[in-house]
Amino acid sequence: MDFATFLEYFRTFIPAAWTTLQITFFGILVGVLLGIIFALMRISKTKFLTLPAKLYISIIRGTPLLLQLLLIYFGLVNIVRLDRIPSAIIALGIHNGAYIAEIFRGAIQSIDRGQKEAGISLGMTGGQVMKRIILPQAFKRAIPPLGNQFIIALKDSSLASAVGVQELLLHSRQLASANYLMMEMLTIAAIFYLIMTSILTFLTNRLERRLKVSDHRV
């Protein structure tokens, strides 16, 4: 394949890459929101909140994402009829929510007990301590594992091909079967994934470094 043909094919991947980015972005957004909610439920002191959170986390982590996606797209058909892309976003969001909840929980629990006590002894309420003292520090600690999770989410978005979302993997496979250039088309998809994951890595590293200014043990 000469370079001009390669470029020609390459350009057809751009809309698919855009779709990959979109489902990843919105999936992560839903995942972070769910993650915060379930992390706070999980560490609360009432069983009424911890039990549902534990249940959610163990069900999601104990079953494959592909199955969750198929369940949402095909399985719920009689209850709600969701389009391909919303199905993919919801599945990715719910799936990542469980992992992100565990990331936040670990980060919150890693903050030294003395921090809470110092806040409490100033007369702050539990809520104030959480919002002003614990969460800002926990968020900082969560950045490296979160970045990692975002990269996993980006790659997992390729599973959306199973319900016919025109994202990178499906596009490359369709082209490949039309022109018998399997190796070439998969390689182009791989290049796109690599570019996007590299950018994500770069961004999280930069954020981490920026927030490090004040971050030492006290």
């Binding site: 030294d112 003395g114 002894s121």
Partner: peptide, 14 residues
């Protein structure tokens, strides 16, 4: 009641 701790417990992000 003000309390001072052995390990200071200053807020590192402030």
């Amino acid at each position: 009641v003000g309390m001072v701790f052995q390990h200071f417990n200053l807020f590192p992000h402030m």
